[in-house]
């Protein structure tokens, strides 16, 4: 375990392993996501209450899952950055923050469009929607802070502190539908409980969620590799790798 942890701290080791896994992540991610979306759009039955507008769930829930999961992963990386000063942890935060921003925007956008036929309004200032909007601002703040500080180490520390302060928002997002009265429906998908929806709807949703997680894995590896190239371009191993034509 500790050996793996130490290996993970090596940009060279990570670059090699990421290059090897990336084609598998991309192929399996695309396959599962397309399967989940096609199944959900064309073959899953209509919802008895919401009609066909509920089909937005097959992208809304995966995007919202990713938006929160990415922030939790960033918080773990922030701890590693502050405690162990591991370079790759900071590389991860910098590489995935824009991805988290896009997924948060997607969950807000698809939620707003879904809200119009379901609730009769695009937006309400209730706890779930507002806390997701705060998550969007947190991602924006992390990206802006990182770009505002020139010194790499100072930027890494400042960003890690901001990420850790913002992590308090994650349980608020999760439990907002239980703690406050809200238009937003309770959690559709729980890992610990039996699904509250029909299996014909639940299976494509799971496929779409898994597919999007795998695609996120591909995106994270690719963006981390780019960041590693920028930071380590003066090292011999990057020079040897690039001159040898290795991607």
């Amino acid at each position: 375990m500790w050996q793996f942890f130490h290996k993970l701290g090596s940009p060279k080791w990570f670059y090699g392993i990421a290059t090897r896994f990336m084609p598998w992540l991309l192929a399996s991610g695309l396959l599962l996501l397309v399967a989940g979306i096609v199944w959900g759009l064309a073959f899953a039955p209509k919802d008895y209450l919401q009609g066909n507008s509920y089909r937005i769930i097959f992208i809304h829930v995966p995007a919202a899952f990713l938006a929160q999961s990415i922030y939790i992963m960033m918080a773990f990386s922030a701890v590693v950055t502050l405690v162990w000063r591991m370079k790759l942890a900071d590389v991860f935060v910098k590489a995935v923050a824009p991805v988290g921003l896009v997924f948060t925007f997607l969950s807000l956008f698809t939620g707003a469009v879904w809200g119009k036929p379901t609730w009769g309004t695009w937006w309400v200032w209730d706890a779930r929607l507002t806390s997701m909007l705060i998550l969007l601002f947190l991602y924006g703040g992390v990206i802006a802070l990182d770009r505002a500080i020139n010194d790499e180490k100072s930027a890494a520390r400042a960003v890690a502190v901001l990420v850790l302060v913002g992590v308090v928002n994650i349980p608020i997002i999760k439990y907002s539908v239980d703690w406050w009265n809200t238009l937003h429906q309770p959690a559709t998908f729980k890992l610990t409980e039996k699904p509250s929806m029909a299996m014909e709807m639940w299976v494509p949703l799971v496929l779409a969620i898994l597919g999007l997680y795998l695609l996120f894995g591909w995106l994270a590896c690719l963006r981390m590799k780019t960041e590693i190239l920028i930071r380590e371009q003066r090292t011999r191993w990057v020079r040897d790798l690039v001159l040898a034509g290795g991607k």
Partner: peptide, 20 residues
Amino acid sequence: VMEGHGPYVWVCYGVFVLLL
């Protein structure tokens, strides 16, 4: 058409695919 819900559904999927 999706019984009138088509525009909502397709706009969401379009933006999702475009951004991803």
